[in-house]
Design a binder for these strands. Structure first.
Lengths: 112, 112
DNA sequence: ATTTTATACCTAAGAAAATTTTGTATTTAG
DNA sequence: CTAAATACAAAATTTTCTTAGGTATAAAAT
């Protein structure tokens, strides 16, 4: 088992959190940002990230704009007006989840 | 989206953590313990828990003993000798993951 | 007395979500 | 001129949980 295992379910919320902090980001940038923040411990695979981005776009949470930078195509994603709401909700729920996980992991041994 | 969404992937590690702290527990007890710890915010469904317990038993991580208590059958689970190792690994990885999530969410780690 | 709630275990069908694998294409470094 | 980094994406697969059931006993409520 690796840390990646635990990522399941959190991916959308992580993307939304990053997009709350940055007006717009492109896919590759998101993978690198997570790598930076976690010192390489957490790696988003592209095969997981892009379907998530597309899903969020289809749901109207994200909108996109294409740009040509240094001859390469980039697809920037940003929160829609509606998306800001949902981002806040998702991030707040993830925070609560982290807090609960913390409680579970910090329990003192009980007498069995 | 609810907190349950984020649980994906963490279930085994949570079970292993609880079994590190308690010599033996039975399925229903585990669901109630998580409910207690998280003040009802996180609910393990039996449909997810029992298959996980059976999987861990099949992998040799857990062993079982049956007991009849107050006319009801209980199946206690505990870590095997091998299981203690794997529990430590899983829990440590989950801790690292939580710590990384906190970094992404800009939360302050509550306990190193 | 009888119904409901709590306790206690379990399975199966299906959905949800990420992974693996593979593919395309350009730029930069060796 | 080859490999690595940048940048996107689809298809098939696997893992994992949810939903929805099923069985059974004891205690509490009506």
């Amino acid at each position: 088992m690796q840390q990646q295992t635990y990522l399941k379910g959190c991916l959308s919320a992580i993307v939304l959190q990053l997009l709350q902090e940055n007006k717009r980001m492109y896919g590759y940038e998101i993978t690198q940002r997570v790598r930076e923040i976690t010192a390489g411990e957490l790696l988003l695979t592209e095969g997981a990230l892009y379907p998530t981005l597309h899903k969020l776009e289809a749901e109207g949470v994200l909108s996109t704009e294409n740009a040509l930078v240094d001859g390469r195509n980039r697809k920037y994603y940003k929160l829609t007006e509606n998306g800001h709401q949902q981002a806040q909700t998702a991030v707040s729920e993830l925070s609560d989840f982290v807090s609960n996980l913390q409680k579970i992991l910090n329990l003192k041994p009980s007498l069995g």
